[in-house]
Design a protein around this nucleic acid. Structure first.
Lengths: 338, 338
DNA sequence: AACGTTGGTTACAACGTTGTACAAACCTGG
DNA sequence: CCAGGTTTGTACAACGTTGTAACCAACGTT
């Protein structure tokens, strides 16, 4: 059976509150009393009932991480880092899978598990700042891209700068017909919009024209979408000599489609991605990509949340930028690999 | 602010318990009363306090899924399916990342979040049946491989049969020097032991010798381990003409190492994996693999847990076998791809 | 007309914890 | 050895919910 404070108290011959004080590390408990209580705790294998504690204190020790899809490598890797970072604060992480739809995301944002959660780290795909404004819910930190300044703390890499840089690198390699895969015309595709902006900026800076026929949309950012977009691009006769994919899974799909079309990477077409997921380090060829520091993203998100929970609920929203670097691998290198 | 039953009750002009009855779908509430209460609930945007409810009922509506690593594709995909399956029962899933170490797994098994969780779906890596016996904790369902009959319900594919089948397929292609990657000598590596057993059985059935020098150990089952093992195998002069990797990530690493060694797949070396993760469908070449029905695994695990929660806590442990099929792709096909 | 039966609602207690208020025991220094 | 404070411990109430028992009203039955 589960034991309660009362059981421990009886065994140790003290009051319930004294046991509670020991459990919570209250200072003014005589050493011998503390020892007796701790012994009783150990003997009974007592564990506090978190629901009762939460009911009393309003804290659960659980935070939620809401991501669109758990099996997209980027989110899986992010989740791992968040779980680790939260562990430092003694928090358990409840991972919620929103599916990326606006309605499900709204549900997630307005409080998963309702009162079971102290705070939320949220990686929205469909929701905009407007959707989030006025949610009286629990403290929230946004992770990933978002266009305008919303009501919550926010951690992300500078998408425009990173996209510009990677595109500029492709241009520096002598490529001139650089395609982009992953564009989204929906008002929600914030990441897509920012990365496209960076792509265009790099083209403009190099004096290259912006060619709509080189920009391929992708509804989702899975491998299959990347492959399909690449095939469409090739079939259209657009003849790109490089492709910037808005994330790595798109790029991995594109690599596959190029392979099927008997085109060599990087000789015929150079490919670059975004996210630096594990897969890209072992693909054939290995994938050049923008590598955001996911560990830092996770740690900052957790720390911002910790700040909110520690006090300043109403402080103005903060925007934190996370470092990234270009990870150059075979898919953009000069010498042949495939 | 958050509202309570009491607030709703005052607004609707009824007692607290009547509101509770409406919320819980109790039958004997007059339609007009129910309407008045529901209106008040909507107006105040009332949501039950789960901690309080749990404290009273002993149920939280949250189950935990404990996996070794969230960013191993197999577990990420499994997690997605478990979240979906649990949603059918109205449960939220708390995903716990154990890291795969024995001590952390013991902690997870003995009750993550202590009282916050109704049940646990556990995919152990290091823990054996003995470790789990005698845990008086919450209801638990094991997912994945395990050798002997333990104290908890268990869902898995028949590892031996699946490994035998995939190895037999390689033999059927005319391969004779078939390597295995992923062996583990630790007492914990249950999956490794079973898959090795199937591999040996297939060799024996075909009258092929079991050659220790063709069996490469791998401490973990990541891409890097697969690549390293493959390199060692090639450097050893063992000259395999096929490789059965004990999971897909190992196989993807092996593909990479073979590519670097300028060996063609499948012409020089055929490669097969296990798990059928998304990556293998887009790799170059695409990966032949054993495809366990992850959706069924997740659904069965959730249903077994539901059974335990619904009543028969003390019923004898059940063992469920999940269907799988061989997914044959380029990495074992006769015609050249790379 | 008195009766049990059922439907609809309510008051109360309890789940296990911790904050508040206070009492008892213990120290210090004059 | 006593006034003053500090340390150590206790009793009680409250967090928001639901199960139990009880009540009143309306009903059909005898």
């Amino acid at each position: 059976m589960r034991h309660r404070l009362k059981d421990v108290a009886e065994r140790a011959g003290v009051s319930v509150k004294t046991v509670s004080n020991v459990v919570n590390g209250y200072v003014h408990v005589r050493p011998d009393t503390r020892a007796r209580v701790e012994e009783a705790i150990a003997e009974l294998n007592y564990r506090p009932n978190l629901s009762a504690r939460n009911l009393r204190t309003g804290r659960t020790g659980v935070i939620a991480l809401a991501v669109p899809e758990l099996d997209m490598p980027y989110f899986a890797e992010l989740a791992r880092h968040v779980v680790t970072a939260a562990g430092v604060h003694g928090w358990t992480v409840l991972v919620d899978q929103t599916g990326g739809g606006p309605e499900q995301e709204r549900v997630a944002a307005s409080g998963i598990g309702d009162h079971m959660i102290d705070g939320l780290i949220f990686s929205p795909l469909a929701l905009t700042a407007d959707d989030l404004t006025g949610l009286d819910g629990i403290p929230m930190v946004l992770v990933g891209e978002r266009v305008d300044h919303g009501p919550a703390d926010h951690v992300a890499v500078d998408n425009v700068a990173a996209a510009r840089e990677v595109t500029a690198h492709l241009i520096g390699l002598g490529r001139r017909r650089i395609a982009a895969i992953g564009a989204q015309r929906t008002p929600e595709g914030a990441s897509a919009r920012l990365r496209l902006e960076g792509y265009r900026a790099a083209l403009a800076a190099a004096g290259l024209p912006y060619d709509e026929s080189l920009v391929a949309p992708a509804a989702a950012w899975h491998r299959a979408d990347g492959a399909a977009a690449m095939r469409r691009l090739l079939a259209s006769g657009a003849r790109p000599d490089a492709v910037f994919c808005f994330n790595d899974t798109l790029a991995l799909g594109a690599l596959r489609a190029l392979h099927e079309a008997r085109l060599r990477v990087p000789d015929d077409v150079a490919v670059a991605g975004f996210d630096d997921v594990e897969d890209g380090r072992f693909s054939v060829p290995t994938l050049s990509t923008v590598s955001p520091d996911k560990e830092v993203i996770a740690r900052l998100a957790v720390e911002l949340l910790a700040g909110r929970l520690a006090g300043e609920r109403a402080a103005p929203a903060r925007e934190l930028s996370v470092p990234y670097r270009l990870e150059l691998r075979e898919s953009t290198e000069g010498r042949a690999q495939a």
